[in-house]
Amino acid sequence: WAVIAPNISAQWNFNLAMIESIRAAKASYEAGEISWEQTAKEMEVNVKKMFYGLLLQEESLNIQRDKLNNAKARYEQASINYKNGLVPELSVLNSQVNYENQKPEVLSAEQSFKQQKDMFVFLLGLPFGTDIELKGTVDSKFVEVNADELVSKYLENNDEVRSLKKNIELLNISLNASRFSTFTPSLSVNYGFQPIVYAGGEWNSLGDATDKGSLSFTLVYSNLIDMLPFSANMQKMKDTKQQIAQAELGLEQLIQNTEIEVHTLVDNLYKCQANIEAMMRNVELARKAYNSTLRAYNNGTQELLEVRDSENSLNQARLGLMNEKFNYISALLDLESKLNLNLH
């Protein structure tokens, strides 16, 4: 009698397509990283734009508050001038009506600003009602950039370009895997071993077992039908080739569109810079005109309408300047995001 241990066997299969599968897994992981980076950068740009937008809205609110305070001061000055006999009662009433009409506008602007701050808090992932204080200015240093140089050096950094290139790489890997799986054999290595532990009253070590095992090598081709031109497998490879061609065409179009967008953003930067410089001069002129008109009104030599027109011109110039600065920052953020670089 004898004691026979359980059968021990091992099998290893290999095909060149397995190498492509490893490459595909690696490329798929890298594509996921690109997608995650793109989403994170988009969120960062949105947060920055909303932050500067809130600063712009806060500045607009401050202008409205200044306008309300000025209206109150004119009403009080008109009352003093009326008591001194310098202006008729109608001037006092007009200035009072103008003052009272601006109060609801300021309250509405304050409520709108509060709602936007709450939205910003939500975007940051903070609990609702969290009070935040904005610190910063809608301002940025002017940068000197050349669109052609940016395109030649940094176009490949664009996340959409990187993502599409990675997808093309995945399609090519998939096509190669299909080819290897179809046209190359699979190697199968088998080894079996069943040791006899006890036989004829003697104990045998595994090395001395009477069963020395068996080793076999087998080359196996897939179903020959898959190699036929009209088979589903071959049609799948044709479809993959067509997808690659379409993706490569899309990549060319994407590169051209990105180049156009970069030139447009750079043009916007210089346009905003020129507008900002012109508007800064305009603000100074409007402020001088307003101060001159206000002094004349306080002395009773100018009508209230002239003061209001002068003040509106000043406020429009200030808001226009702030808006243009915001446009410059937005264009700069878009350009940095488009090419994955830091320009300021």
Rank of each mutant, 00 (worst) to 15 (best):
A2K: 15
I4L: 08
W12Q: 14
L16G: 06
A24K: 13
G32A: 13
S35H: 07
W36G: 06
T39Q: 15
K41C: 11
K41I: 07
M43W: 13
N46F: 11
N46I: 11
K49H: 07
M50V: 01
G53W: 01
L56D: 00
Q57N: 08
Q57I: 05
S60V: 12
L61P: 03
Q64A: 12
K67N: 15
L68H: 01
K72M: 07
E76G: 01
E76W: 02
I80S: 11
L90A: 12
L93H: 04
K103I: 14
K103V: 12
V106S: 01
L107P: 01
S108V: 01
A109G: 05
E110Y: 02
F120Y: 09
V121F: 02
L123Y: 05
T137D: 14
V138T: 04
D148W: 07
E149T: 08
E149F: 12
S152N: 09
Y154F: 11
L155H: 00
E156I: 15
N158K: 06
D159T: 13
E160T: 09
I173R: 06
P185V: 05
V189E: 08
V189G: 04
G192L: 10
P195L: 06
P195E: 03
I196Q: 08
Y198C: 03
G200D: 15
G200R: 10
E202S: 12
L206A: 01
T210V: 14
T210M: 10
D211M: 11
S214V: 14
S216I: 08
T218D: 15
V220M: 13
Y221E: 14
N223E: 13
M227R: 14
P229Q: 10
P229L: 10
S231L: 10
M237C: 06
D239H: 10
T240I: 12
Q242M: 14
Q243S: 04
G250T: 06
L251P: 06
E252G: 07
E252R: 08
I255G: 09
E261F: 06
V262Y: 02
H263R: 15
L265S: 08
N268G: 07
Y270I: 02
K271D: 13
C272T: 11
I276K: 00
R281F: 14
N282W: 01
V283E: 10
R287T: 11
K288M: 04
T293R: 04
L294M: 10
Y297T: 06
G300Y: 00
T301S: 13
Q302R: 10
E303K: 12
L304H: 04
L304Q: 06
L305I: 15
L305K: 13
E306R: 13
E306C: 05
S310V: 03
N312I: 08
N315E: 12
A317G: 04
N323S: 03
N323R: 02
K338N: 09
